[in-house]
Design a protein around this nucleic acid. Structure first.
Lengths: 224, 224
DNA sequence: TCTTGTCCCAATGTCAACATTCGTACATCG
DNA sequence: CGATGTACGAATGTTGACATTGGGACAAGA
């Protein structure tokens, strides 16, 4: 049986704040004031504070001493950084997952790819596709079974999600074109065990997204 | 001028606790009780709590809800995880650093390698060598200039340090043999710009340490 | 003897009050 | 008029008290 995990108010608060960032209710760059959040979430400042620390660990929020926390504001350089790191992590995850692949895991991945296909045919909205996309990659990391690798992934995952949000807003057609094909190919390669070809495919899957995104993310405030 | 950074008691507390772990004053696996620490560090529980959260982000400490924090206890599997991730990060860092290398950066790395050489000749203790080793890699990450990559590195750095502690206790001769040679080679390759050879060398530098360490870290409490 | 239930305490989770810091608007001086 | 100093308010940093939880000791029952 899977152990139930109680988490406390700080995690709850972090979840709520994260949602409101992803929903666009608070814009990138906006300040996240502790008292304000404490009131609106009906918890104490301490819990909000701890929740913000969790979001900072995810890179969604940056805070400075005595200056509070703000939602990150992504410029092309940030996109480049996040996706460069992500490519290295996915490369490792794909190799690890391939090494530990079982029919059971393979079926799970396959069913996610099929769900993507159905979602596309049903003309589902971008958020649904994005959720499936992330679920696929979460699963790959889980199969790889390396706790530290998963931790590192969680350190960029929320930022990836924020960036992908831009992608489905501005380049949905291209995204839809690649979604099933690339993931299907990854599953095929993973099912054959670790290989240099798989490593490269996993890296390239992320890197092509990086190249596409860097140009989608508005003009860079260089040198600031 | 470099901006002075005030950090608050939580960071101070984290530093002190981290030291006491590295010094061996608190053993792996021991509980870190908040009140106890608050008294001995003469700060409030809140600050200790926040400090422990920082250490948890570094992977030095694990805590569960209502059960408090404990120092991590490293078994061979953990070593494997940490070093596998580290290898991927170092690969990326080396490539990034090579792409942005300047004479100034090169000189800084060179002087660290020379310091290693002098330390070896002067028969310095393992802790000194280890400090230089980490300083070298910190510098490489800094040169690479990718903030997210540095964050990911900080997510394993303390664990690496803890593991290396074991290495200099149990396998110092081998460590001393390789130290200057491998780092010198990395500098040489980085000075020539990014290349597949460099990527492999950086990966192998970590991976050979992984192989050596996995067997040094006592019998594995498998399946626990 | 093994299981089940209850009590109790130590430790953490949560909270609201107090202390400190930062930015800014305004006054003052050269 | 520009530069410097100062006072104020808003927000965060820090603290100690109260609430809740988890685990172990102990006792009762099968």
């Amino acid at each position: 049986m899977r152990r139930v995990r109680r988490r406390g108010l700080a995690h709850e608060a972090a979840d709520r704040i994260r949602e409101s960032i992803f929903d666009g209710r608070v814009a990138p760059g906006s300040p996240l004031r502790e008292v304000e959040l404490a009131v609106s979430l009906d918890v104490s400042r301490g819990s909000v504070r701890e929740g913000l620390a969790i979001l900072e660990r995810e890179g969604l929020v940056r805070s400075e001493w005595h200056r509070g926390a703000r939602v990150i504001d992504l410029n092309p350089r940030d996109v480049d950084e996040v996706y460069t790191v992500r490519a290295a992590l996915e490369r490792l995850a794909a190799a690890g997952a391939a090494a530990r692949m079982t029919p059971h895991h393979l079926a799970a991945l396959d069913s996610l790819v099929q769900a993507m296909g159905r979602a596309l045919e049903g003309d589902a909205d971008g958020l649904t596709l994005l959720a499936l996309d992330l679920a696929f990659h979460d699963r790959v990391f889980a199969i790889a079974g390396n706790g530290r690798l998963t931790d590192a992934w969680h350190g960029v995952r929320s930022q990836v999600r924020l960036i992908q949000l831009i992608r489905i807003e501005r380049d949905q057609a291209h995204y839809r074109d690649l979604l099933v094909g690339e993931h299907h190919e990854l599953v095929r390669l993973m099912s054959r065990g670790p290989s240099e070809e798989l490593a490269r495919a996993a890296e390239e899957h992320v890197d092509s997204a990086r190249r596409a995104l860097v140009h989608l993310v508005g003009p860079s405030p260089e040198g600031m």
